[in-house]
């Protein structure tokens, strides 16, 4: 409860404490701290990035969720790696979702297309994940990525991937979510 109150203050002064809470083995407190850090946005990213290598696994997993929630491109490499190779499915899920909601305007325009290509490459891997929830997050990310992409080749790959998930994924949740995504693409 104390953590939840601290998270609600939305003060940069709370950042060190909220980050510390990520390292405790207490999911309830970590959820509250994660939400607080996401709400603080970019100011939280710097301290998190500076310390992330020292974290234990649990804290890293929560930090990935914060990065995914904020969408700061400085955390992109961590998200790409976590989405395709973390052993925990809930971390892969959160990282995958985060790849579609990067703050594109913060990426220099001359590297934007290359960065989006890199993200799409990773989403093509997560589209094959054995866990349905990671594939579901992939669909959501592809749908979010599509309007941000200007390269027509990339747009085509996104659409084809969504069509293939809609037509041949064994899970109803995935085929239905892909159907919705494709419907929204068509609407522009």
């Amino acid at each position: 409860l104390a953590v939840s109150n601290l998270a609600k203050v939305r003060s940069p002064l709370a950042i060190p404490t909220l980050i510390e809470v990520l390292g405790y083995n207490n999911p309830g407190a970590a959820v509250a701290a994660t939400e607080g850090l996401i709400a603080l946005g970019e100011t939280a990213i710097t301290s998190l990035l500076e310390n992330v290598d020292d974290y234990n696994y649990g804290a890293r997993a929560w930090a990935i969720r914060v990065f995914a929630g904020i969408g700061d491109p400085r955390a992109l490499q961590l998200l790409l790696k976590a989405a395709s190779s973390d052993f925990s499915l809930s971390v892969r899920r959160a990282a995958t979702k985060g790849l579609g909601t990067i703050k594109w305007q913060q990426i220099p325009s001359d590297t934007l297309s290359q960065t989006q290509q890199q993200i799409l490459d990773t989403l093509l891997i997560t589209a094959q994940d054995g866990e349905w929830v990671v594939r579901y997050a992939t669909v959501v990310s592809l749908a979010n990525l599509y309007p941000a992409v200007h390269n027509l080749d990339l747009k085509n790959i996104i659409e084809k991937t969504l069509i293939s998930l809609r037509d041949s994924d064994p899970e109803i949740a995935i085929t239905t979510r892909s159907k919705l995504a494709l419907q929204n693409l068509a609407k522009g």
Binding site: W132, V133, I172, A173, Q183
Partner: peptide, 28 residues
């Protein structure tokens, strides 16, 4: 509760709802 579990429960709702849609000949 954990989001992982909530997502599994919601997946159950979604699957059921898609069946209802099919019976009503409705899409989404």
């Amino acid at each position: 509760a954990e989001n992982s579990l909530k997502l599994i429960a919601m997946k159950g709702l979604l699957e059921y709802q898609v069946k209802v849609d099919q019976e009503n000949q409705q899409e989404l």
